[in-house]
């Protein structure tokens, strides 16, 4: 979908991006991770030509991005940023319809699309359609921002720390919704963040950037389990790696199915099989037990998890990524 070939960018004497090569396939959710000044935003902004690259080639849908008019390129790529940037003088509806209107979609199609996106992002159309940005909370504004980025059904969605300014609860809710959108739409998403847990939770692939170079690129599990260098280990927090690994694994993948071991009556109440092992560990510790019953979405007991199960090696056949 997007291919960078030995791309570099300098600002004066500073090399922001240093010969980066990266291929982003259709349907991937690539998280570009790095600390401030690592060049991660520059890398993203080069993809839609908000920043022009100095050397190398960037291909979109097989063509050098400079062969497109910048406006045409950007209308095919959604764009959402941390500061949201809603147009304060336009209603929610008109904000979301920005790109469809630029593309001159017929009004009925625009209206239908706006309603569809508002519902997808948990904004009741009847309530919020005619509101103005200043009448919304920060979380609602970013929902509108994401809806606006998705409005014209772009081939790629570029997001620059989209949830960085939100409170933890709202951030978690929007991260879940983004994962859901990625699941149902199969859209290619490139997301920039410095939030390690956000990267581990959302990414199908993480690209770790430092001083304008890619340090390592791989699945969240690979980044934690097979760090390429001490920098990678340090970045993901040497002491927290174990906990974060547990965060990537789901209870359903580690539990013992019902029948294998009889359940005890003194168990307090089941945990959900969609929990991550990290959350399960927390339950073990807070209840001071070493085994927990596990229930599925309907509440039926489907198995149980023992504390020592957390130490088992991951089964190679399973993706092992909690959403």
């Amino acid at each position: 979908m997007i291919e960078l070939q030995e791309v570099s960018k300098r600002f004066g004497a500073v090399t922001a991006i240093d010969e980066v090569s990266l291929t982003i396939g259709r349907g991937e959710l690539v998280v570009i991770l790095g600390s401030s000044g690592s060049g991660k935003s520059t890398l993203l902004r080069m993809m839609n030509r908000l920043v022009e690259h100095d050397s190398g080639r960037i291909l979109f849908a097989g063509e050098e991005i400079r062969s497109f008019r910048p406006e045409d390129l950007r209308r095919r790529m959604g764009y959402a940023i941390q500061s949201i940037g809603l147009f304060p003088h336009w209603s929610v509806e008109r904000n979301i319809a920005t790109v469809p209107s630029l593309l001159r979609w017929p009004k009925t199609r625009v209206d239908a699309r706006v309603a569809e996106l508002m519902t997808l992002l948990q904004l009741e159309p009847a309530v919020y359609r005619a509101r103005y940005p200043h009448q919304l909370s920060g979380g609602q504004q970013q929902r509108v921002g994401v809806a606006r980025a998705l409005a014209a059904d772009p081939e790629v969605l570029l997001m620059d720390e989209p949830f960085g300014a939100l409170d933890p609860v709202t951030r978690a809710a929007l991260q879940r919704e983004l994962a859901h959108i990625h699941d149902v739409s199969g859209k290619t998403i490139v997301l920039v963040t410095h939030d390690i847990d956000e990267a581990l939770g959302l990414a199908t692939r993480i690209v770790l950037l430092d001083a304008g170079r890619i340090v390592q690129s791989g699945t969240p599990l690979e980044m934690l389990a097979q760090p390429a260098s001490d920098f990678v280990t340090d970045f993901f927090g040497r002491a927290d790696v174990g906990i974060r690994l547990l965060g990537l694994r789901r209870v359903s993948e580690y539990m013992r199915p019902v029948g294998e071991h009889p359940l005890h009556d003194d168990d307090e109440g089941p945990i959900s099989d969609t929990l991550s092992l990290r959350d399960a560990l927390s339950v073990f510790v807070s209840r001071r037990v070493d085994r927990l019953p596990v229930a599925n979405g309907e509440g039926t007991i489907v198995g149980r998890l023992e504390l020592r199960d957390l130490l088992r090696p991951p089964r190679p056949s399973e993706p092992g990524i909690a959403q």
């Binding site: 908000l50 764009y79 940023i81 940037g85 147009f87 003088h89 630029l102």
Partner: peptide, 26 residues
């Protein structure tokens, strides 16, 4: 607001659309 201008550019408004639709309108 600068974010509105950045979003306008990133979403693909051309310079005239940004000037009249966003800057002068605001």
């Amino acid at each position: 607001p600068a974010p509105a201008l950045e979003a306008a550019e990133g979403l693909g408004l051309n310079r005239w659309q940004r000037l009249f639709g966003v800057e002068l309108a605001l």
